[in-house]
Computed example of a mutant assay.
Amino acid sequence: MTRPLWVAAGFVLFALGWIGMVMPMMPGFVFLLGALYCFARGNPALEKWMLEHPTYGPALRNWRDHRRIARKSKVAALSVMVLAGVLSGVFAGFPVAIVPIAIMTLVAGWIWTRPE
């Protein structure tokens, strides 16, 4: 893949990451990790900018270097998942809500078992 394609993919993933930060049930940080990966291959200056960003830079560095998730981030992610699960149950109803709640339960278990 050429450098411009890596950069383009990085911008798409970056945009999805920001959308995911405000949309429940959409994992924003995963897309930011993808953007970081793409920028590392296409434009190291953008990778550096993401890693030095005051808001999400520390979490990106923590994951990239040590595969750790801070307890504050874990609690925030799990809280949003619980809220999204409750809203799914209320608005979608019993049979439909089982699938997203099951998926969020599996993801929550994975998040909680990551080192801090």
Rank of each mutant, 00 (worst) to 15 (best):
R64S: 10
G57S: 03
A97D: 06
V80F: 12
F39K: 04
A84D: 14
R64K: 15
T113C: 05
D65C: 02
G42L: 05
P100V: 04
C38H: 05
F29C: 05
I111M: 09
I103E: 00
F14W: 13
L33I: 14
W63V: 14
P24L: 02
G17S: 10
W6T: 00
A102Y: 04
L13E: 02
N43K: 08
M26N: 01
A102E: 05
G28R: 01
P58W: 05
C38A: 15
G85D: 10
L33D: 02
S73F: 09
F11N: 02
S79A: 15
V82D: 02
G93D: 04
L78R: 06
W49M: 08
A15G: 13
G28D: 03
A15P: 07
R3F: 09
I19S: 01
W6A: 04
A77N: 12
L78V: 15
F39M: 07
V107Y: 09
L32R: 01
A102L: 12
V96Q: 06
I69F: 11
H53E: 02
P27F: 04
F31R: 01
V80N: 06
M25K: 03
S88Y: 08
W49A: 14
I111G: 06
E116P: 07
K72P: 01
R71H: 13
G93Q: 04
R3W: 02
R3P: 10
A92S: 10
A84C: 12
S88A: 15
M21P: 01
F91P: 04
M104L: 15
L36P: 07
W112Y: 14
H66W: 11
A77S: 15
G28M: 02
Y56R: 00
T105K: 02
A108D: 09
M81Q: 12
L106T: 05
W49L: 11
F91Q: 07
A8V: 13
A35Y: 09
L46V: 08
F29E: 07
L46Y: 14
N62H: 11
V82A: 15
V75E: 03
W6Q: 01
G42T: 05
L16M: 13
I101C: 05
C38Y: 09
G85M: 12
D65A: 12
G34A: 09
G85L: 02
G57M: 03
R114K: 14
A35D: 10
V107S: 04
M21Y: 08
V7T: 11
S73Q: 14
E116F: 05
